[in-house]
């Protein structure tokens, strides 16, 4: 049995809500994201088409929940979001993989929206696998728009090994 990598400090972090941060949803970000996936629906590119279909502006494509405001003072240089969460713990595990993603929508997200984002670690588990000892962290995130409506929730599973 490998040593237990889950410290008391990590356990104490489970359920603790992060300081809110901001994701901006703008036209450039939407088009860049839609292009990167290979979307062809004009609702992500053409404002007239988006308005014709009843949206306030370009629609954010599935999975795009805005871009975290980048600032070297507090952003992660590789992933762009706020530093924090599991990245703050020195686990000795240097490699990481994405274990899974779940998203749920409660409203439309359009260009011009500003989303307030807060998250917490829901669970940390240690497992032995083909790639060695893994720390598996589940993070839950809530996205609220400028009108105070919760428009999306996401759940991500991160694997450190």
């Amino acid at each position: 049995m490998a040593e237990n990598l889950i410290t008391e400090e990590m356990k104490a972090a489970i359920g603790r809500e992060s300081e809110p941060s901001t994701n901006e949803v703008d036209k450039t970000g939407i088009r860049m994201f839609a292009r990167s996936v290979g979307h062809t629906d004009q609702v992500f590119y053409d404002e007239d088409e988006a308005k014709r279909r009843g949206y306030r502006g370009l629609l954010a494509p599935p999975h795009y929940l805005g871009t975290p405001i980048f600032n070297p003072k507090y952003s992660d240089p590789t992933f762009g979001g706020r530093r924090g969460g599991m990245r703050e713990f020195n686990t000795g595990l240097k490699r990481r993989l994405n274990g899974g993603t779940e998203m749920e929508y409660f409203g439309d997200i359009c260009a011009g929206d500003t989303l307030t984002v807060s998250s917490h670690i829901a669970d940390i588990a240690q497992r032995e696998g083909g790639i060695g000892t893994m720390l598996i962290t589940t993070t839950e995130t809530t996205y609220k728009n400028q009108l105070g409506q919760v428009v999306a929730k996401s759940r991500g599973t991160g694997i450190q090994y």
Binding site: M32, R35, S36, V37, Y64, P77, T78, F79, G80
Partner: peptide, 12 residues
């Protein structure tokens, strides 16, 4: 590379 820019994930 497009996705790295679009999503903000620049993991090497």
């Amino acid at each position: 590379v497009h996705w790295a820019a679009g999503s903000g994930d620049f993991y090497q």
